[in-house]
Computed example of a mutant assay.
Amino acid sequence: MNDLLDGARDSAAYLEPIAEGATLLRGFAVPAAATLLAAIESVVQAAPFRHMATPGGRRMSVAMTNCGRGGWVTDHRGYRYTAADPLTQRPWPALPAVFFDLAARAASTVGFAGFAPDACLINRYRPGARLTLHQDRDERDFKAPIVSVSLGLPAVFLFGGVQRRDRPRRIRMESGDVAVWGGPARLAYHGIAPLVDGNHPLTGRCRINLTLRKAL
């Protein structure tokens, strides 16, 4: 019993509440970082990174690709999930087991047991790239949480409320940090401030982010 209590105390040490329903797990993905990056490389070989355009025609500064049953895309037709990569007309690469397992464990750690992601958006940030405040609302069911994994250069994660006017918190995300939000925070506005230049031993001059969702 003492061993179990010690383990619980150790786990709690890296949990950082962000808001009701939202938690940051500091360093949670560090042990799996090399395996995650190898899996990302395999995905990118089949579905290369690309800079998508918003429905209004603005080129996004973040390069993106997907894996899983559905991939998130944006173009003049709007935001949506597709079963096939528009560039290749082939199904998106399968969701790597290491992605699924990490996301399920992270979600369970903060109270979202049974999370079974079926889609992962992979974002690559170069210096100066950013992601404006937005909600993840293109999924069919908002009961499942969002799990976001940060690798490489540190970034400032902007996490607001369910109204766009709510002032966001600025949270420094290091490589290996994982954010999970759901329940009352599921539709919180969030984004990434412009990435500061640097050089990380795992990724060089970029940051890679995995956003795992139950989309379909």
Rank of each mutant, 00 (worst) to 15 (best):
184 P>V: 09
154 P>A: 14
51 H>V: 04
168 P>F: 05
168 P>G: 08
102 L>R: 01
214 K>A: 14
172 R>V: 14
185 A>C: 05
195 L>F: 03
35 T>N: 11
138 D>H: 03
200 H>I: 00
161 G>P: 00
26 R>I: 08
38 A>P: 00
143 K>R: 14
133 L>D: 13
6 D>T: 13
27 G>H: 09
111 G>W: 10
142 F>M: 11
115 F>R: 07
131 L>V: 12
132 T>F: 00
66 N>G: 05
52 M>E: 15
181 W>M: 03
144 A>T: 14
134 H>N: 09
83 A>C: 05
211 T>N: 10
94 A>K: 07
159 F>Y: 06
14 Y>T: 12
180 V>C: 06
207 R>D: 14
200 H>K: 08
101 D>C: 02
169 R>A: 15
184 P>S: 11
150 S>M: 06
177 D>W: 02
116 A>R: 08
129 A>D: 15
4 L>W: 10
162 V>E: 15
114 G>K: 11
22 A>K: 03
192 I>M: 07
23 T>E: 09
105 R>N: 10
212 L>S: 07
140 R>G: 05
97 A>E: 15
95 L>M: 12
176 G>W: 07
85 D>T: 10
7 G>E: 15
166 D>K: 01
55 P>A: 11
216 L>R: 12
47 A>P: 00
61 S>Q: 13
27 G>T: 12
204 G>A: 12
119 A>R: 02
128 G>R: 10
60 M>V: 09
51 H>Q: 14
53 A>P: 00
205 R>C: 11
118 D>Y: 02
165 R>E: 15
130 R>K: 12
56 G>Q: 13
32 A>R: 13
32 A>T: 06
3 D>W: 03
80 R>I: 03
153 L>V: 03
56 G>S: 08
30 V>S: 09
89 Q>Y: 03
97 A>V: 13
62 V>F: 03
79 Y>N: 06
66 N>W: 05
95 L>H: 05
